[in-house]
Nucleic acid binder design. Sequence first.
DNA 1: TTGGGTCATGAATCCGGCA
DNA 2: TTGCCGGATTCATGACCCA
Lengths: 336, 336
Amino acid sequence: MTPRPLRLSWSDRPVDFSASGPGVVRAERPRRFATQDGRGEFYEGDNLASLDELVRARPGSVSLAYMDPPFDTGRVFETQGRLAESGVSVAYDDRWSDRAAWLEALAERLVRVRELLAPHGSVVVHVDPRTSHYVKVLMDELFGEENFASEIVWRYRRWPAKTRNFQRVHDVMLRYRKDARVEGRWNPLYEDLAPSTKATWGTRKQRAVVDAGGKRLRSTTLEEESKGVPMGDVWDIGVVAPVAKERTGYPSQKPEALLSRIVTSLSNEGDWVLDPYAGSGTTAAVAWKLGRRFVTMDLGEASRAVVHERLAGIGATLFEGESYEKSQQTRKIAAA
Amino acid sequence: MTPRPLRLSWSDRPVDFSASGPGVVRAERPRRFATQDGRGEFYEGDNLASLDELVRARPGSVSLAYMDPPFDTGRVFETQGRLAESGVSVAYDDRWSDRAAWLEALAERLVRVRELLAPHGSVVVHVDPRTSHYVKVLMDELFGEENFASEIVWRYRRWPAKTRNFQRVHDVMLRYRKDARVEGRWNPLYEDLAPSTKATWGTRKQRAVVDAGGKRLRSTTLEEESKGVPMGDVWDIGVVAPVAKERTGYPSQKPEALLSRIVTSLSNEGDWVLDPYAGSGTTAAVAWKLGRRFVTMDLGEASRAVVHERLAGIGATLFEGESYEKSQQTRKIAAA
DNA sequence: TTGGGTCATGAATCCGGCA
DNA sequence: TTGCCGGATTCATGACCCA
């Protein structure tokens, strides 16, 4: 018996999330900005339109996609601090008619991101523990469950809320490969040895000692220092502190330490890293610092302003330019 | 517009998971064992039948249910160590025709557990990060999403596997209340303050200082010692070590430290704690030690042997006895 | 240069007040 | 009655100052 598929159903569920897709030319095309060397791009406009442009121009080109969509909180998010004083107050609107509508919007983006992934590529979707489950079931359908790689738990610390329940102090990131049969990008990371291990073994490598018959005797330590233990799927990383220099004033900003782990382990230098929900531009900034190429996009002024300033600060100044196709032509002519 | 419900669908999905339910008298009734004071019970047999008996006898009586079903791994689990040498080798069979079949079986148990919960009660379902998402979507439907309380992440440490991926080092527990409008059981737990907090503030409570105009100034510390920070939903607890005294030889045994947190925070002394998948009997043992009453159940000899021995070791010897109804009659007569 | 003390302020949740 | 809004709660943490 073949396994019966498990699917999420809701009324008026579209048959095909890519309908009204890449073939459709939209009235409003996104504005394109790029660094002078073309190793970084920002599109301003609805990310669905931007993704469609990319799918047309260069499918299969992305090694790593990180997606941090709104979490279906029903709230409008406002800017803070200096950014708020500059007059831009609304960052993004996270109100949806129902969860099904939210899920449909996400699904439309996911199928396009999948088209953009290279065979060795993978996508990481950042969600919260109230929505992650719906996203996982949806992604099992869209990507195939055999391509599910990890549920990564981001554990942070914050001031406690008054509640008769355990404090909610984690987010969830789901990683899927484009194709599990292909060897994907992987640069191993290590974390500190557990305190109990350090107490018993110190920081040298352990090695099991086996006798001639293959029976395990005791373990010993080697001369070699241990690199630590291979990184697990629960990450203890602080939120961006209220007074941190890293802080931009854009709400729900993700820490660079978090993105560093993702970008370092799941892409190589020179790879294209995609983030369809740029927000404050953390993914692009981290990718650039780590020698990756980036393509990111967002709707509205708050994000564009923050991303442009942030990237300019690390030497990735964005200029408004021609479309991708046109810039490629220019490049060819210049090279000839 | 009312929100469109999101549901899991699969072919031949039953309309009603409680069909063939409490009304049906089964050919094989579970064997009942109880402590002499009646504060602890074990049923041997299919837990569906045992749950049905309980639903008939005392619905709404349970304050806390902990469920640790098989994780749909497709494997047969064998006993280890001393238990294996005693001749009982198969602990449980976790092979299912497909995930839908597994989910149906779980759903049948969940609807019965829900019947057994008191209005102030809650249920904790222990799953792994490949199945938790399906269970959450199912439980949102069965319990109502407004009754979802927590996704608790159990982070453990183990010998690293060789894999081009982040090490899987966590399980997931989903907690739902029977009725969020009712004040549920809640005994707060605390964990250590963050090192950075201790360095800056010591271990005294912080208090914000606000001036006459309501503007926030700096914070101060109070005289009062902080109890620590209210427990979060990510728990760092070691697995039961291969050489631990706690170890029974029953596979996938859960640590008592884990159950202690659950039982302490989510039930009061004297409350009934239910575990439909007894396994090695950790829930019953912990509940008993903490002064709760327990009712637990499992199929087969491996579990019965381990549970009986384990409970006898802490003064909760189980005797085979009459049905619950009959024992109640005996009790009344004795009291008269 | 380093390290300790001081400062500023976000975030989730509940609760009370008011419409 | 219900629903929205503002206030209170009180850890966490990088930046800054100064010795």
